[in-house]
Design a protein around this nucleic acid. Sequence first.
DNA 1: TTCACGCTGTGATTCGTTTCACAAAGACTA
DNA 2: TAGTCTTTGTGAAACGAATCACAGCGTGAA
Lengths: 212, 212
Amino acid sequence: MISDKTVARLSVYRRVLLDMQDAGQAHVFSHELAARSGCTAAQVRRDVMATGYTGSPVRGYDVTALAGSISEFLFHSEAQKVALVGIGNLGRALMAFSPRRNPRIPLVAAFDNDPAKVNRVIHGCRCYPVQQLEEVVESEGIRVGILAVPSAAAQDTARRLCRAGVVGLLNFAPTHVWVPPHVYIENLDLSMALEKVAFFAGLRAPQKEISL
Amino acid sequence: MISDKTVARLSVYRRVLLDMQDAGQAHVFSHELAARSGCTAAQVRRDVMATGYTGSPVRGYDVTALAGSISEFLFHSEAQKVALVGIGNLGRALMAFSPRRNPRIPLVAAFDNDPAKVNRVIHGCRCYPVQQLEEVVESEGIRVGILAVPSAAAQDTARRLCRAGVVGLLNFAPTHVWVPPHVYIENLDLSMALEKVAFFAGLRAPQKEISL
DNA sequence: TTCACGCTGTGATTCGTTTCACAAAGACTA
DNA sequence: TAGTCTTTGTGAAACGAATCACAGCGTGAA
């Protein structure tokens, strides 16, 4: 019913609105929000419809109210606890986001199979040996998993997470991971993204006389 | 003419094919490639069409030949040199991919504004102070940039890269970056992706009695 | 009071992508 | 040789999402 892409854009609008709020801006028009989010005004209005919020033809949207409406829409359910598997450079980068992160999506545990990396707290996140994965996921009621492990370990780690009760996965491993139908999985394949950029860059000629 | 999404999937097929090649598999059917790539057989055949390669109704596709055809299609142009800006945890994670990376997309330079992080070589990639960005990008003929800097610095860094001749950008900063029309930009917004996963996880109930 | 203006909300349309469905073709069997 | 099977390549149909375009509305000016 609600589209994948709409959710993604709402998340962007929300961040822009919070920035506007910090800057003391009280109202915003769809075309303004569109410009700052990289899409069109009509798109913004359609997406805002989904949250049920209604703006005024004269003032546009109330920044605080719209941010609140989107937050309520996106985070309607109880807080979704998150577990990270793989404390490499990528895993640490993800933990470093913590301060900026939404309290409705707390990163509560990290796992690694390297004994040197576990049994400590990084950025407020407790690190466990991967053997304790099921135990911690179940006792904490964790529902979202982040796969930052090598490709070879991705499928088995996903299976363990799903069996332990995870229903959403964010996969950074450059490999396709099978999950049961009730689990939502989002793949962020960095090397694929880079190949895509390189491909389209190869089609384009540099133009230095641009106006920036 | 050629779709964004087709390029992304071709990149995936290519990796799967290389794995098959390593495993000694000589031929593959569209449905098999589809299963290992997470899409449908019809989709695979459509995408393969784009590369101009033709399989046999009996043997399916020749693994080596198809991998070659996709590689030629994706990397038809000269090698696309890549520069990374931002040597934080994320930047280091990206540099660590180097060994697995395609030689047609070499990471040749990294930049940071922290003097402690530069003037050395990490994973074969030379690190420069960010002041030398334009100089190095121009002299090396770098065409692709990776933005792994804080949001606040993203727009200005993008502007500098584009002026120096970059035509493809991979943006990890959770903010919208404006680039001139001739530049291709791909956004990998980690916090947005996590919010998306959390949203859909919130809609789903855990089911432990699944068969894995 | 009346008019003109600019924006929102949304039905209708357009556009791009995915899926369907089948003709064509090689291999194997009898 | 004729028939069957499985798969590819691809036109056509179905689907989903972005865009268009305009009615409705509140405001401010005359």
